[in-house]
């Protein structure tokens, strides 16, 4: 299947790390990178039922004269064909529209705020809106380029978690990397979680792919996260419980991203996965 990853190139050392991470992802999952070198500080993304205005951090416009050359060098080094995106439609003269029909998108933890604020425990509001509205999973990269050699899927039994698991299985098949499932029990037994997987006819395929099911029925969630391998791409669902519960109880995804520095592939509530 032909798929594309949308990457907004930032012509800075931090942007290079993010781009390298995108390129590694593309090579692993046989995806074509589509690179956007922004000319304007803001753009719009029209999703199915939402429009998100992304106001980029000023560093995205750093030294535009060298940006394309830098991106080309990195693309060449990863043996990937340059595919630069030029906006065709504009809502206003300085406000381009970016398509939303990609299969993946790469974001740093924040694209609107100063990069000095980027760190664990902080996901910018725009990245959050994109995750919530997008049909595609969002790759949130670690601050420094680090290849991953295995996959970890967080599975809590929700519809979003099932989508994340399906995506994890697809990537495991494509890459041949081992797939671990990480579950923190929440008033349910291991058998209950297994039943959910069985009900969705994923048991056999999972048995073939899965290396381990890391199941925690006790201990603090944040403490148990130490068990996540440092070199794993972590795949998880986000904001699947609705706004009110997320506001009251907090989002599990926010917990995870604030604790582990791994690359994250986040599946939002509008993503629909096929095995």
């Amino acid at each position: 299947m032909y798929s594309q990853l949308f990457h907004i190139f930032r012509n800075t050392p931090l942007g290079r790390e993010t781009f390298l991470q995108s390129l590694y992802f593309c090579n692993q999952v046989d995806t074509t990178p589509v690179v956007y070198i922004p000319e304007f500080i803001k753009f719009l993304m029209y999703f199915d039922n939402d429009v998100v205005q992304v106001d980029l951090d000023e560093s995205y416009l750093t030294d535009p004269a060298t940006a394309e050359d830098h991106a080309r060098i990195l693309l060449d080094s990863a043996n990937l064909k340059p595919n630069f995106f030029t906006p065709k439609n504009f809502t206003a003269s300085t406000l381009p529209d970016i398509p939303t029909n990609f299969e993946f998108m790469c974001c740093p933890r924040s694209i609107s705020d100063l990069s000095s604020k980027i760190g664990l425990g902080y996901i910018g509001p725009r990245v959050r809106r994109i995750v919530t509205s997008a049909r595609f999973p969002v790759l949130i990269t670690s601050a420094v380029y680090k290849p991953w050699t295995r996959l970890v899927v967080f599975f809590g039994g929700s519809a979003n978690a099932l989508n994340a698991l399906k995506l994890g299985m697809r990537i495991a098949r494509q890459t041949g990397m081992p797939l671990d499932i990480f579950t923190q029990a929440e008033n349910r037994s291991r058998e209950d979680y297994a039943a959910i997987i069985r009900d969705h006819h994923m048991e056999d395929e999972l048995e073939r792919l899965q290396q381990r099911w890391i199941f925690f029925d006790e201990g603090k969630f944040e403490t148990n996260l130490y068990a996540v391998p440092h070199d794993a791409l972590v795949i998880l669902g986000a904001y699947g419980h609705g706004l009110i519960r997320n506001l009251v109880f907090g989002s599990k995804m926010e917990n995870i991203q604030s604790t582990i520095p791994n690359n994250l592939l986040i599946v939002g509530p509008n993503y629909t996965a096929g095995i």
Partner: peptide, 26 residues
């Protein structure tokens, strides 16, 4: 507000004709 300036109505027509009337809250 970080909005692109404009007269307003063309932006509304653009949004209706191209994006099913999606407009920013701001």
């Amino acid at each position: 507000m970080r909005e692109g300036a404009g007269h307003g109505v063309p932006e509304v027509i653009y949004s209706v004709s191209r994006y099913g009337g999606l407009m920013r809250f701001r």
